[in-house]
C-alpha cells in the first residue's frame, strides 16, 4: 500500500514526497533562472566594453573562486537564517527573519555565491561569439552595437544559456540535498528546544531537502524511507541532464529533416562535430 513506507509519525512518505515536489522544483527553477539572469547582465559590459587583456586578467583572478567550496559556505551562511533560535529568558523559540524574508535571503545567497564564476563564464561565451567573422562583417557594414547584440549575438547565445541553465539546476539540486542533510530546510527549520524529549527538526513545508534531513537517520530502520527523497533528487537531476543533452543534440542537428538518408548524415555530424560553414540562426524554423 505504501511503496515508500511510512515515517515515525505515521505519514505516508510517498505522499509527503509528492507534496514537497512543487516547492523544491519551483525554487530550483527560479534560483537557476535568477543566477543566469544576473550573470548575463553582468557579462554584457564585460564582453562589450572591457578590453581582452583586462578580461583575461579578471578571469584568472576569478578562478580563485574555484577553491571556495560552495556547500560549506552555503551551510555556514544559511545556518543563522534558517535555524530556529532560542531566546533564553522565557524559552521562546524565534526566527531572526520572517518566513518571506527567510526565503528571499536564501534565494539571494544561493544566487550571489556563483555569480562571479558564472558571469565570467558567460562573458567568455559572449566574447567568443563577438570574435566570429559574421560579427566583423556586420560591424563593417555599419551595424550599431545594439543591433549586433540583438540580431547576431542573442540568437547564438540563448541556446547556450539554456544548457548552462540546466547545469545550474543540477548544481542547485545537489546543494539543496546537502543543505537538507545538514538540516537546513528551504524556508526554515523548526527546532524543538524541549529539554526532555525534543522532536527532531522538522521541515515547514515537506520539501525534499527537508525530507532528506528528517529521514536520513532512518536508514538503519528501513532503507527505502531514507532513500525515497534522495532517489527523487536523483530522478530530477537525471531529468535536467537529459534536457540539457537533448537540447544540445537538437542544436547540432536541427536543420536536417529526419529521413533515413539524413539519419546517416546526422550521425556523421555528431561524430565529427564539425559545424556547417554558414547559416542564419534566427531564420531557422526550429
Amino acid at each position: 500500500m505504501f511503496p515508500f513506507g511510512t515515517d515515525a509519525l505515521g505519514y505516508d512518505t510517498g505522499m509527503k514526497i509528492l507534496e514537497g515536489a512543487k516547492f523544491t522544483l519551483l525554487s530550483v527553477l527560479v534560483i537557476a533562472f535568477l543566477r543566469i539572469l544576473f550573470s548575463f547582465v553582468l557579462a554584457i559590459p564585460l564582453a562589450f566594453f572591457v578590453p581582452d587583456r583586462i578580461r583575461r586578467i579578471l578571469d584568472q583572478l576569478l578562478s580563485s573562486f574555484y577553491f571556495i567550496p560552495l556547500t560549506i559556505i552555503a551551510v555556514f551562511l544559511l545556518t543563522p537564517v534558517l535555524w530556529e533560535q532560542l531566546r533564553m529568558p522565557g524559552w521562546e523559540e524565534y526566527f531572526i527573519y520572517t518566513f518571506n524574508q527567510r526565503i528571499w535571503l536564501e534565494v539571494f545567497i544561493l544566487t550571489i555565491l556563483v555569480i562571479p564564476l558564472l558571469g565570467s563564464t558567460i562573458g567568455n561565451i559572449l566574447a567568443l561569439i563577438l570574435k566570429e567573422d559574421f560579427i566583423v562583417g556586420a560591424h563593417i557594414l555599419g551595424a550599431s552595437k545594439w543591433r549586433i547584440f540583438i540580431k547576431h549575438v542573442i540568437p547564438h547565445l540563448l541556446p547556450k544559456l539554456v544548457i548552462v541553465w540546466c547545469q545550474q539546476c543540477v548544481q542547485l539540486l545537489i546543494i539543496f540535498m546537502h543543505l537538507g542533510y545538514f538540516k537546513l530546510f528551504f524556508g526554515g527549520t523548526d527546532v524543538d528546544y524541549n529539554p526532555l524529549i525534543p522532536d527532531p527538526p522538522v521541515s515547514l513545508s515537506n520539501e525534499w531537502s527537508g525530507l532528506i534531513g528528517d529521514y536520513y537517520n532512518l536508514i538503519t530502520v528501513n532503507p527505502s524511507i531514507a532513500l525515497g527523497p534522495i532517489i527523487m533528487f536523483g530522478i530530477a537531476i537525471y531529468a535536467f541532464q537529459l534536457i540539457g543533452e537533448g537540447f544540445q543534440h537538437h542544436l547540432q542537428t536541427r536543420h536536417y529533416k529526419r529521413t533515413n538518408r539524413n539519419r546517416v548524415l546526422e550521425k556523421q555530424i555528431l561524430g565529427s562535430k564539425t559545424k556547417s560553414s554558414f547559416d542564419f540562426v534566427h531564420k531557422r524554423g526550429a
Binding site: 540535498m177 542533510y181 532503507p223 534522495i230 541532464q241 537529459l242
Partner: peptide, 16 residues
C-alpha cells in the same frame, strides 16, 4: 550520463 546524475548522498548510502 545516468551515473553522473546519481546524487552523492545516494552513493554514500549505497556504499554503507
Amino acid at each position: 550520463t545516468f551515473l553522473e546524475s546519481l546524487p552523492d548522498l545516494l552513493v554514500f548510502a549505497l556504499v554503507q
